[in-house]
Amino acid sequence: MGGGWLNGVKRDFTKEEALEEYLFFLADDALILGQQLSKWCSVGPVLEQDIAIINTALDHIGRARLLYQHLAVLKGGVTTEDSLAYFRDHMDFRNALLIEQPNGHWGETIVRSFFMDTFNFYLYDRLRSCSYAPIAEVAEKSIKEITYHAQWSAEWVVRLGDGTEESREKVQKSVDDLWMWTGELFETSPIYKELDPSFVKFSTLKSSWLEKVDEVLQVATLTRPEDGVWAQTGGRYGVHSAQLGFILAEMQILPRTHPDANW
C-alpha cells in the first residue's frame, strides 16, 4: 500500500488526528471496560462485591463521558458524547483487545481488571502533567478512583491466588490465558511523532507495570508466564476480536433502532 500506510495500518497522522487518536485510546478503554464490568450487576459472588464492581463500572463510564465530551468539542458539528459511543463501528474503536475479552468467571474478570487497572494507574498518574489541559484535568480528577481500582483488583488477585487450591488453579489459568493480550498495551504508535512527550507513550509504562504485576503475583503465589509470549495486536488501530461486535451490538441497539429519538 502506498502513501502513509504500512501493512494495512495508517502511519501518517496530522497533529489533530494524533490528538484525537490518543483521546480515543483513553476514552474507548474506559467505556468498554465499564460496559464489561457492568454486566456483573446482580451476578457477583456476594452483594458487597456487586456494589464494588458497579462502582468501578460507574467510574470508568464517567471518565469515558468526560473524554467523549471533549472529543465532541474537538470534532464540532453534530458530534456528541453519545454519537461517539453509539454510532461508531468496531473499526473506529481504539480500545485495547484485552478489555473486550469476555468476563468469564470472577477470577478472569479480576485478572483482566488487574492488568488494566495497573496500566491505568501508571498512565493516569503521569498524565496529570500532560501539557494538554483537558487530559491533565481528567487525569487529576480520576487518579484517586483509578488508584482504588488498582488496589481492589490486586487485593482480589492475592485473595484468589493465596485462597484455596481451586481458586489458585483458576486464577493462574486466567493469568496464563489473558497474558497474550497484555503486550498490546505497551505498543508504540506513529501518533506520538505528532504529540509532545507529555502525552505519555504507553511503551514507557512497561517496566513499572511489569514490576508491579510481578510483585502482586508473587504475593499471590502465582507465576507469570515466560517472556516471549506472542502478543496480539490491533485494538489501537481498529482491528478487533469478534467479541467487540457483540459488545457494541448490545450497547448500541436502541439509538441505532431509533436514530431520531432523544433519551
Binding site: 459472588p45 477470577g107 485473595r159 485462597g163 484455596t164 481458586s167 483458576k170
Partner: peptide, 12 residues
C-alpha cells in the same frame, strides 16, 4: 458460581 470465590476469600 460465587461459592469458590467466597471460599477463597474466607481461606485467605
Amino acid at each position: 458460581e460465587g461459592a469458590w470465590v467466597r471460599e477463597a476469600a474466607l481461606a485467605y
